[in-house]
């Protein structure tokens, strides 16, 4: 009998239910309503998205909320080739982007929609596209289109 017969194959599946805190709850409810929220400390300009309940730098509550316009700058992008089995592929190649949203100081990772990923550049302006059908959580965003 070959050695490979003795390989023990197992799959660990552990269901989680991650509960949102107050800042994330407001963010997720915003996504549901087609609004993008960031938060920061009152009197400070720095805004984070997804929002945090408090600032780890100034150690103050981050309860100064702002609705973002949904436009931003492509800080970076990565093109997933066809056939990467773990990811859904619907014809065109998947492009991941890091978008610095206008009005925020952090990036949001999401999909970039373009037929020509070869022409993308760091610094390209993009605009958020909402998904037509209602979807929970971050999936309410379909991704970003080039401006």
């Amino acid at each position: 009998m070959s050695e490979s017969h003795w390989i023990v194959k197992q799959k660990i599946e552990i269901p989680f239910h991650y509960t949102p805190g107050p800042a994330l709850l407001r963010f997720l409810e915003g996504l549901r309503d087609g609004k993008l929220f960031a938060s920061g400390v009152r009197g400070e300009s720095r805004k984070t998205v997804p929002p945090l309940s408090f600032c780890g730098r100034s150690w103050k509550p981050a309860d100064d909320w702002a609705e973002l316009p949904g436009t931003g700058t492509l800080e970076s992008f990565a093109v997933v080739p066809h056939g990467m089995a773990e990811l859904p592929q619907e014809g065109e190649r998947i492009v991941f982007g890091l978008v610095k949203l206008d009005g925020a100081d952090t990036c949001l990772a999401h999909l970039i929609h373009t037929k020509e990923p070869g022409k993308l550049k760091v610094g390209t302006k993009v605009r958020l596209r909402w998904r037509a059908e209602r979807s929970p959580g971050i999936q309410a965003i379909a991704g970003f289109d080039l401006l």
């Binding site: 991650y18 949102p20 994330l24 997720l28 997804p50 859904p88 991941f96 990772a109 959580g137 971050i138």
Partner: peptide, 15 residues
Amino acid sequence: FDPYVERPLGLDEHI
């Protein structure tokens, strides 16, 4: 990755 807004997208170390 963050389970709320990042993991649903399928991000991993290579990406």
